[in-house]
Structure formats: structure tokens, C-alpha cells
């Protein structure tokens, strides 16, 4: 396993049930979106790369978050744009779950939470 350094606690894992997302604001960080895909947590930027709107208002469909504004989609496991009109990816961030909290970590590998 890759060494990981817990950078920032984002939320309680219980706050994000399966199939749900949560926008989290922490000092010094962009607004982040914590996503629960079938029990696995993923963190991406909350800002759609297309219309500059919050993705937290959209639906999580499988591993894709759909922007509420123009219905573009992103794969939350890697940030890739998967449906028009979105074209540019959004940033994805490694995370782990420790003691019931979702943490941002500095490892590019991340862990399965």
C-alpha cells in the first residue's frame, strides 16, 4: 500500500449515503464534491468545467455526476468528462475513510475506502 498522509477531514462518511454526493467547503481548498459510488468514496472538484456551476445540485448516475445546468457528465472516479457539452475534465482527488471520516490524502494512488 502507498503511504498516505491525511491532509484534511472532509465529512462524516455517514453524511454521504450510497448514490449521494455532498459539497464540502474547507479553508484553502476549492469546494469539493464527496461522492459515494456503491460504497466507495471519491472526491472531485465541485465546479463543472463547462458552465461553472456546482455539480452538487446534479444527480449521481452510477459513477457519473450529471451537471444540473446543461446535463454534461463527469466520471467521479477520475474526473473525465463523459458527456457533452462538457469537454474538459474536472480535478479528482485521492481520499480515504478513517474512523468514519472521509479524508483528503496526498497520495496520488489513494485507497479504496
Amino acid at each position: 500500500m502507498t503511504e498516505t498522509e491525511l491532509v484534511q477531514a472532509l465529512c462524516d462518511s455517514a453524511e454521504v449515503p450510497e448514490g449521494e454526493v455532498l459539497a464540502v467547503e474547507r479553508p484553502g481548498l476549492p469546494t469539493l464534491l464527496v461522492c459515494n459510488v456503491d460504497g466507495t468514496y471519491h472526491v472531485v472538484d465541485d465546479l463543472c468545467s463547462h458552465g461553472a456551476s456546482s455539480l452538487a445540485e446534479g444527480r449521481l448516475i452510477g459513477c457519473e455526476i450529471e451537471c444540473a445546468l446543461h446535463k454534461g457528465r463527469f466520471d467521479v472516479t477520475n474526473g473525465r468528462a463523459t458527456r457533452r457539452p462538457s469537454k474538459k475534465p474536472i480535478s479528482s482527488h485521492a481520499c480515504v475513510v478513517r474512523d468514519g471520516h472521509v479524508f483528503l490524502v496526498n497520495s496520488s494512488e489513494g485507497e479504496t475506502a
Binding site: H50, R83, P85, S86, K87, K88
Partner: peptide, 16 residues
């Protein structure tokens, strides 16, 4: 519409 091929309807980096 949005599934029309980018080969015929290229979009720039901003998706347009």
C-alpha cells in the same frame, strides 16, 4: 444531439 460525433461536430475545449 449531444451524441453526434465529434468527427463531424467538433467541440472546442470549452465544449462549443
Amino acid at each position: 444531439h449531444r451524441f453526434l460525433s465529434g468527427g463531424a461536430f467538433h467541440t472546442n475545449d470549452d465544449g462549443y
